[in-house]
């Protein structure tokens, strides 16, 4: 039994390594270009998101919320979102409302707390699944172009593109720094409970300390990045209308995009129809 437990925890830890995280993030960003959702126009998807990200928050009708939830669940499945993201979504929903439910029970509430909390859960789940569909299903470049078309600050779309490109490198560098600290360090023995606590503190301390070289390295890198951007006239191009027009000319709305919007609208209308019937 003990052997099995240790094996189990080992395999979980194996799965949760830095490389796993990196591959999941990369897969999330660039691994699903061929899905139905990724082929849609980013502007249309942002409009779609604005509806499903805002409206459920204001509606308290159970059948309408359930319908919206089913729809965004289907789109999430269509977008082939990475497993890690879905796991985080489930965890997030539970920690927001499941936790509240337990606390309510603790303070003497009873089953009467379930319906309002179910409504709240559905709201939270719908909104976050809609965002998962749009922000994980789309290519970062397309997403930032779409945001730019709506007049979002250039800083934001630059940040999105930059973040997706730099993140794997940053993660690798962080891992290297961390490993070098571990190689040179002398961890305390962790057989007893007190030793385990000290071991945990030691690990956290190493993570904190490894930010020191990381900060210096990233400072050098960000100077290089900004100087390279300046050489290409980034700050002038960012506010220039012609540049923006050229950059956004690749975006085209097709029948598929309109069909997607119309189908979503049909589904929502059906939900409203049902909620008026019952």
């Amino acid at each position: 039994m003990e052997h099995m437990m240790s094996k189990l925890s080992e395999s979980i830890l194996d799965k949760f390594s830095m490389d796993f995280l990196r591959s999941q993030v990369l897969k999330n960003a660039y691994g699903n270009d061929d899905t139905v959702i990724a082929a849609l126009d980013p502007r249309i998807l942002i409009v779609w998101y604005l509806f499903f990200g805002v409206v459920p928050w204001f509606v308290n009708d159970l059948s309408f919320l359930l319908g919206c939830f089913l729809l965004v669940m289907v789109t999430t499945l269509l977008a082939h979102v990475a497993g890690l993201v879905l796991f985080l979504f489930a965890l997030g929903v539970f920690s927001q409302t499941g936790y509240l439910f337990l606390a309510t029970l603790l303070f003497g509430g009873d089953a009467s707390a379930i319906p309002p909390l179910l409504v709240l859960t559905l709201k939270v789940a719908t909104i976050s699944l809609a965002s998962v569909t749009v922000f994980s299903g789309l290519d970062p470049d397309r997403l930032s172009n779409g945001l730019m078309w709506y007049g979002c600050p250039e800083r934001l779309s630059f940040s999105i593109c930059y973040a997706y490109r730099m993140l794997p490198m940053l993660m690798e560098e962080f891992q290297n720094v961390l490993l070098s600290y571990r190689l040179r360090g002398n961890p305390p023995a962790h057989d007893t409970l007190w030793g385990k606590v000290r071991y945990l503190i030691y690990q956290v301390k190493i993570i904190m300390e490894s930010f020191y070289p990381l900060m210096l390295n990233t400072a050098k890198r960000s100077r290089t990045t900004v100087e390279a951007l300046e050489l290409r006239g980034y700050r002038y191009a960012a506010v220039n209308k012609t540049v923006k027009k050229i950059k956004l000319s690749a975006l085209k709305v097709s029948y598929n995009d309109l069909l997607f919007l119309a189908l979503s609208a049909l589904w929502v209308a059906l939900c409203i129809f049902c909620s008026t019937l019952f």
Binding site: W57, V85, F89, S128, S131, V132, F135, Y164
Partner: peptide, 8 residues
């Protein structure tokens, strides 16, 4: 945004 947890 990268993890798709954008909450409006």
């Amino acid at each position: 945004i990268m993890l798709g947890q954008f909450g409006g």
